[in-house]
């Protein structure tokens, strides 16, 4: 399907979100992704998958893309693309790492870096619906400047608790020292295993691997922990 870039917005020094209009789009569930296909003037093509930060029936979608230093598609989307430019998308794709407002029960979201994108779609899906499912988000970033969707996440939302974890540098006076998310962080800030929450973990492989292992050690049912990983091992 042909998509036209409607607007671009910087999220961090290395990432930006793109709003795209896709006439004929039939909607998507929170957590799904799309394949983006780019064609150069000489016919050369490249396709990559990106999670959607948006969900629902509308034909306006949002992607948020982090620049990979040796990438060929992400630098174009982060640095070059302008409103009015066109690309092609296929989707929605993926039926596993998804949340729908009809699902009852607590939802624990755990994001590392740009892994926030599909989880943001879930937060927005909940906010746009009548769902009363309690949500918690634990969001790990390197520095305060690396936060995606900061203003939106800092706006208090009933039923959504957000906890920030910084791995390299914190805001001034921040109580938690810098460091990777540990089992203690998960115990302190996440729904306990006894509540049997649906857990969604998304981020770089090392982050997801460490968090998912710690969740299992804390007694979470592995079948309730859904993961999405990106990046090299």
């Amino acid at each position: 399907m042909t998509a036209t870039v409607a607007s671009v917005h910087p999220e961090t020094a290395s990432a930006r979100s793109l709003t795209i209009d896709v006439p004929g789009w039939r909607g998507n569930i929170a957590g799904q992704h799309v394949d983006v296909r780019l064609t150069a003037e000489d016919g050369y093509q490249a396709v990559r998958s990106y999670s959607l930060a948006s969900s629902g029936p509308g034909a306006t979608l949002q992607l948020a893309v982090d620049r990979l230093p040796d990438g060929e598609v992400s630098p174009y989307l982060v640095d070059d693309v302008l409103p009015g430019d066109q690309l092609e998308i296929r989707g929605p794709l993926g039926g596993w790492f998804v949340w729908e407002p009809s699902l009852a029960g607590s939802v624990q979201l755990i994001a590392g870096g740009s892994g926030i994108v599909p989880l943001m779609a879930m937060i927005r899906s909940r906010a746009a619906s009548a769902s009363t499912s309690p949500f918690r988000l634990l969001y790990s970033v390197r520095n305060p400047d690396d936060v995606f969707f900061r203003a939106e996440l800092e706006t208090p939302t009933p039923g959504l608790e957000v906890t920030w974890a910084y791995t390299r540098a914190t805001p001034t006076g921040w109580p938690r020292p810098t460091g990777r998310v540990t089992g203690d962080d998960l115990s302190a800030h996440c729904f306990p295993a006894s509540e049997n929450p649906a857990v969604f973990v998304c981020g770089p492989t090392g982050f997801v691997e460490a968090v998912a292992n710690a969740l299992v050690l804390l007694g979470h049912d592995p079948a309730r922990v859904k993961t999405e990983r990106f990046g090299g091992a």
Binding site: T2, R37, L38, T39, A40, E41, D42, G43, Y44, Q45, A46, G71, E72, P75, Y76, D80, V81, L82, D85, Q86, L87, E88
Partner: peptide, 14 residues
């Protein structure tokens, strides 16, 4: 006919 993405392709892989 594919849609052309303006300015894409400068970092292509072999």
């Amino acid at each position: 006919m594919a849609v052309i993405s303006r300015g894409f392709g400068s970092r292509r892989r072999e």
